[in-house]
């Protein structure tokens, strides 16, 4: 009972001392209070609905990807238009090791002639490709860090004489076509 009285007494004192404060101080205190309340609200909401560190990490990865893409686009626009090769013995533009890697990483397209060329040594792939009206399920262009080489390929699937088949053709991407806007795999060496 005595304790309760003491507490109420203290509260009364602080209430009175608050009343005695000047108006600007009271307003400043109120402002600080509102700011703290806003921060707390967002903190609670973020804990409930936000992805926190995961979201930040995702954003960082996306930012890095965009930066890398910009860098590669800049590089592609600086390349001469036409055929780019990674080997000697032709009149075409010879890619340096660094450029070869960069072009490989920037390339996504594989045109029909490159696919048809690779199919010369894969009759099954050729058959499925032809039967299905030149349809390709998937294409890929990958840089192999271990081998320091660029690999490209494609997957064809379909029904070949009553049998469902899927054939993956892949090989070293040795030449590219630079259009000024993008680059395309021009020769897949799968032999």
């Amino acid at each position: 009972m005595v304790n309760k009285k003491k507490v109420f007494g203290k509260m009364e004192v602080s209430k009175n001392s608050f009343k005695t404060l000047s108006e600007p101080v009271k307003q400043f205190g109120g402002l600080v209070g509102i700011i703290i309340l806003i921060f707390l609200t967002f903190f609670v909401l973020n804990n409930i609905f936000g992805e926190g560190d995961e979201l930040v990490a995702k954003m960082k990865i996306e930012e890095e990807r965009i930066a890398e893409e910009r860098k590669l686009n800049k590089l592609i626009s600086s390349l001469p238009s036409g055929v780019l090769v990674s080997f000697d013995g032709t009149d075409n533009f010879k890619l340096s090791d660094e450029l070869y890697e960069a072009v490989c990483k920037a390339t996504k397209l594989i045109p029909q002639r490159a696919i048809m060329g690779a199919n010369f040594l894969n009759f099954r792939a050729h058959e499925i490709y032809t039967i299905n009206g030149n349809k390709i399920d998937e294409t890929f262009v990958k840089w192999d860090d271990e081998k320091n080489k660029c690999f490209a390929g494609f997957v064809v699937s379909g029904n070949n004489v009553g049998v469902d088949e899927t054939v993956k053709v892949s090989g070293e991407a040795l030449s590219f076509l630079s259009t000024g806007i993008d680059t395309r795999v021009y020769f897949i060496k799968n032999f």
Binding site: T90, R113, S175
Partner: peptide, 28 residues
């Protein structure tokens, strides 16, 4: 072909048929 394949030889019904030589883009 624009990507460097060259076939020189015999054709039959628009297909490569008979004796011929195919040059691959890398010189093979």
């Amino acid at each position: 072909w624009p990507n460097g394949y060259i076939y020189k030889g015999e054709f039959k019904e628009s297909q490569w048929n008979g004796i011929g030589i195919l040059f691959f883009p890398d010189g093979s």
